[in-house]
Design a protein around this nucleic acid. Structure first.
Length: 570
RNA sequence: CGGGGCGUAGCGCAGCCCGGCUAGCGCGCUUGCUUCGGGAGCAAGAAGUCGUGAGUUCGAAUCUCACCGCCCCGACCA
């Protein structure tokens, strides 16, 4: 592509509303332009990279036996009512009506459509297993789109679905996907973690996320050097408890001291000697959850334990259940009926500080079992940095991350609801066992940029780079330089290297800055050195290293840089 | 949805508090000349519903109200 003719609008200045590096650089380097909140046009340079990503995804999906299909984004709402997800998605689903006033939705995912296809075409165990996938636009009316292309309202997803007749089949389909995903993200040159995750709205028991670490991530991971990694939603750590002697239960005055920090300072006791009471409501019932004073309640774990959505209790509910306001509530003789759960770190603990269910008072010396009843112990807390890894005991690191992909063992949630069944060997009708697997295509692009840039601009890796070589003739008024650069452009193109030729009559500095911003791995400068000594300057974008080479050395150098796997193509 | 910020030329911004004459600056764009190794210089030019609507006023980019849009933090999130 010749830059004089290219639709490649680069920006010297950073747009005011772009915050994270990938977003800023995608706009500055002309990959994307915003149309509305969370909606982007993908310009030629960005589209070129996305197509390379999609090609890798297709190769790896085909390799594990996936069959590509394409389902409609425009769906009748009724099909979403069959599983109840039209309601479950709430405002996140885009709804519209056709001319006959029939309700339609823009699909946020495709389990329902898969089930519809499956119930029409899968009749027998002999038709299974199946693995169907697509790369398609998804629509989600996110409450808050953000971070450029990372959370948008319209985005490309590779979504695939496995249909199996038994659990062993599902295990295999799931494992194949896990392997394919590792291959995809590795081939795209990304550093990533595979973590145990929560299934959330999707249902099902087992799920794993593929995450890349980023300070701008919306998720938090617990990571150990031994290889253990989990989303904080489900991460656990070893329980380390010290033994303390019993002490008598004593009510003490703590005027105006509500938070653990305040009471700890006032009573001169460490926060870990506290049992913090958090009052939640699940299914209309009040639940008190105790966690150690230095720990945090993990609502996701509580939710999984209770099998119901939970929310923090309102002040009047707290008062009704405990007889005191937040800050002074505790497990010792609450005034109302409350189920009491406690984090396992509190099991067997003695001499704890708890709220007294009386304004401005706490108890010291409290002991579960002796002074208050715990209905159940469980893992209800967030892992914190430095906690001991469950598998090796070394300290865990906690880091933010962005989700690239998520794989789920769904089971029969959707197939049962939609009567997607088959006849097994015994002629018995059974629901198809499903898995569902997603990759955010644009997020791979964003991750590649988050992991490949410097203060000057993008630095593409050799796989995703939109072009291999950026030819920079300096002095376009010199016919010799123009002739040589055109000739190189022609020969490299014939060798099937993708080349950018900056044939604009701009100043050298301008071209160099633009080339660094666009970030093609190899830059070739044709200028003074050519005039004086017939040498090309080959510059590696990542390192800035420049070498003078003869014209006939260029192709071999390019081949070396991009590796032997390209040789067949040359 | 709660909190905060912003909306003036393609981009980045000033002007607004304290109303007033022709709405300004840098970049970019057009034309010409000169330049040409890290976002060149000079000269001449084109380009604006000051987000929208209503109100106050002799007069509104500026004050008031409503609405719309965009960004950030939080909530939420496959």
């Amino acid at each position: 592509m010749k830059l004089s003719r290219a639709f490649l609008p680069t920006l010297k200045e950073t747009p005011a509303d772009a915050v994270i590096p990938s977003h800023r650089l995608m706009i500055r380097a002309g990959l994307i332009r915003p149309l509305a909140a969370g909606v982007y046009s993908i310009l030629p340079l960005g589209w070129k990279v996305l197509k390379k990503i999609m090609a890798i995804v297709r190769e790896e999906m085909d390799r594990i036996g996936g069959q590509e299909l394409h389902m409609p984004a425009l769906n009748p709402a009724e099909i979403w009512d069959e599983t109840g997800r039209n309601a479950d998605f709430g405002d996140e689903i885009f709804r519209l009506k056709d001319r006959k006033d029939r309700p339609l939705v823009l699909a946020p995912t495709h389990e329902e459509i898969i089930c519809d296809l499956a119930r029409k075409f899968v009749k027998s165990y002999k038709d299974l297993p199946q693995m169907w996938y697509q790369i398609q636009n998804k629509f989600r009316d996110e409450p808050r789109p953000r971070s450029g292309v990372i959370r948008t309202r319209q985005f490309f997803m590779k979504d695939s679905y496995s249909l199996d007749s038994d659990e062993e089949g599902l295990d295999l389909s799931y494992r194949l996907h896990a392997d394919a995903y590792r291959a995809i993200f590795s081939r795209c040159g990304l550093d990533f973690h595979v973590v145990g995750a929560s299934s959330g709205l999707m249902g099902g028991k087992v799920s794993q996320e593929f995450m890349f670490e980023s300070e701008f991530g919306e998720d938090t991971l617990a990571i150990c050097e031994c290889g253990y990694a989990a989303n904080l939603e489900v991460a656990s750590a070893r329980i380390e408890t010290a033994e303390y002697p019993s002490a008598p239960l004593q009510r003490v005055e703590t005027p105006g001291k509500r938070t653990i920090g305040e009471v700890a300072g006032f009573l001169k006791k460490e926060p870990l000697r506290f049992a913090k009471a958090v009052v939640m409501v699940a299914d209309g019932k009040t639940v008190m959850v105790l966690v150690r004073g230095d720990h945090e309640l993990n609502e996701n774990k509580l939710q999984s334990f209770l099998g119901a959505a939970v929310r923090p209790a309102h002040p009047e509910e707290i008062l009704a259940a405990c007889g005191a306001e937040a800050g002074f509530v505790g497990p010792v003789q609450p005034s109302g009926p409350v189920r009491i759960l406690a984090d396992q770190a509190l099991a067997g603990q003695r001499d704890l500080v708890v709220g007294a269910n009386l304004r401005d008072h706490h108890y010291t010396g409290a002991e579960p079992g002796r002074d208050f009843k715990v209905d159940a112990f469980g893992d209800f807390r967030n892992v914190s940095p430095g906690d001991a890894c469950v598998s090796c005991g070394r300290p865990l690191r906690v880091a933010n991350a962005i989700e690239l992909g998520h794989i789920f063992k769904l089971g029969t949630k959707y197939s049962s609801a939609m009567k997607a069944t088959f006849l097994d060997r015994n002629g018995k009708e059974k629901p198809i066992i499903m898995g569902s697997y997603g990759i955010g295509i644009e997020r791979i692009l964003a991750a590649a940029i988050e992991q490949g840039h410097d203060e000057k601009g993008l630095i593409w890796n050799s796989v995703l780079t939109p072009y291999h070589v950026h030819l920079i003739p300096v002095k376009m008024d010199n016919p010799e330089i123009v002739r040589v650069s055109e000739s190189l452009y022609g020969t490299l193109g014939a060798e099937s290297w993708e080349c950018l030729l900056d044939d604009r009559s701009a100043s050298p500095g301008f071209k160099f800055k633009d080339a660094d911003l666009i970030g093609i791995p190899l830059q070739v400068v044709i200028g003074d050195r050519w005039i004086r000594e017939k040498k090309l300057e080959l510059r590696i974008r990542r390192t800035g290293e420049t070498t003078l080479i003869d014209e006939n050395e260029l192709s071999p150098r390019i081949r070396d840089y991009f590796g032997a796997e390209r040789e067949g193509a040359c």
